[in-house]
Amino acid sequence: MSYAYKLNEDVHHRPQGPQGRAATDPPMIYTIVQRMPIEADGRLRYRIKSKSENIERVVTEDQLSYSQ
């Protein structure tokens, strides 16, 4: 498995609502700051940092999309 996103790349994060449902908030722009080790479930994870707020989070690759 290879990572789709590179370090320092800008991406959109699609937040999840309660119980995994789609959230109504618009996607925010984040920057990839670290590629996390592949977990036992096989999903790729990234540490991302918000461009507009002082927020960092760890997300799975399926929650991200390219920023234009």
Score class of each variant (00 low, 15 high):
residue 50 S to C: 11
residue 19 Q to G: 02
residue 40 A to D: 14
residue 15 P to Q: 08
residue 42 G to V: 04
residue 50 S to G: 10
residue 20 G to I: 01
residue 32 I to A: 04
residue 31 T to K: 15
residue 26 P to Q: 07
residue 17 G to E: 01
residue 21 R to S: 11
residue 44 L to I: 03
residue 15 P to S: 11
residue 58 V to E: 11
residue 51 K to D: 13
residue 54 N to D: 15
residue 50 S to L: 05
residue 31 T to N: 08
residue 52 S to Q: 13
residue 16 Q to E: 06
residue 5 Y to K: 04
residue 58 V to Y: 10
residue 17 G to T: 04
residue 13 H to V: 13
residue 49 K to I: 01
residue 56 E to S: 14
residue 24 T to W: 05
residue 7 L to K: 12
residue 61 E to F: 00
residue 45 R to C: 02
residue 50 S to I: 05
residue 56 E to P: 07
residue 16 Q to Y: 05
residue 7 L to Y: 05
residue 4 A to S: 10
residue 60 T to H: 07
residue 67 S to M: 09
residue 1 M to Y: 13
residue 3 Y to C: 00
residue 55 I to D: 14
residue 45 R to E: 03
residue 20 G to V: 02
residue 25 D to Q: 10
residue 62 D to Q: 00
residue 18 P to K: 07
residue 66 Y to W: 01
residue 56 E to Y: 13
residue 15 P to D: 07
residue 68 Q to D: 15
residue 21 R to W: 03
residue 17 G to K: 01
residue 5 Y to H: 07
residue 12 H to V: 10
residue 16 Q to V: 05
residue 38 I to S: 05
residue 19 Q to H: 12
residue 14 R to A: 01
residue 63 Q to Y: 04
residue 8 N to S: 07
residue 9 E to H: 03
residue 53 E to G: 03
residue 36 M to K: 13
residue 43 R to Y: 10
residue 27 P to N: 07
residue 50 S to P: 08
residue 52 S to E: 13
residue 18 P to M: 01
residue 9 E to Y: 00
residue 13 H to L: 15
residue 4 A to E: 05
residue 14 R to F: 13
residue 23 A to G: 10
residue 32 I to P: 08
residue 61 E to R: 00
residue 40 A to C: 08
residue 59 V to C: 11
residue 41 D to N: 15
residue 52 S to K: 14
residue 59 V to P: 07
residue 46 Y to N: 07
residue 64 L to R: 03
residue 20 G to C: 04
residue 20 G to F: 09
residue 1 M to Q: 12
residue 5 Y to G: 01
residue 8 N to A: 05
residue 16 Q to G: 04
residue 15 P to W: 03
residue 40 A to W: 14
residue 31 T to S: 07
residue 17 G to H: 02
residue 37 P to I: 06
residue 27 P to K: 10
residue 59 V to K: 11
residue 25 D to G: 00
residue 60 T to N: 06
residue 14 R to Q: 11
residue 33 V to P: 05
residue 41 D to C: 05
residue 63 Q to S: 10
residue 36 M to D: 12
residue 31 T to H: 07
residue 57 R to Q: 14
residue 5 Y to L: 02
residue 33 V to L: 06
residue 58 V to D: 08
residue 17 G to I: 01
residue 15 P to L: 05
residue 61 E to S: 03
residue 43 R to Q: 09
residue 28 M to D: 11
residue 51 K to Y: 04
residue 45 R to S: 02
residue 26 P to V: 00
residue 49 K to T: 04
residue 3 Y to E: 02
residue 68 Q to N: 14
residue 23 A to F: 00
residue 57 R to I: 06
residue 36 M to A: 10
residue 6 K to R: 11
residue 23 A to S: 14
residue 25 D to F: 07
residue 19 Q to A: 09
residue 43 R to I: 01
residue 29 I to T: 15
residue 13 H to P: 02
residue 35 R to A: 06
residue 41 D to R: 13
residue 40 A to E: 15
residue 37 P to D: 04
residue 5 Y to P: 00
residue 31 T to C: 08
residue 37 P to H: 06
residue 42 G to W: 13
residue 44 L to R: 14
residue 36 M to V: 13
residue 68 Q to P: 15
residue 14 R to V: 03
residue 33 V to F: 02
residue 38 I to D: 08
residue 65 S to P: 01
residue 36 M to N: 11
residue 30 Y to K: 13
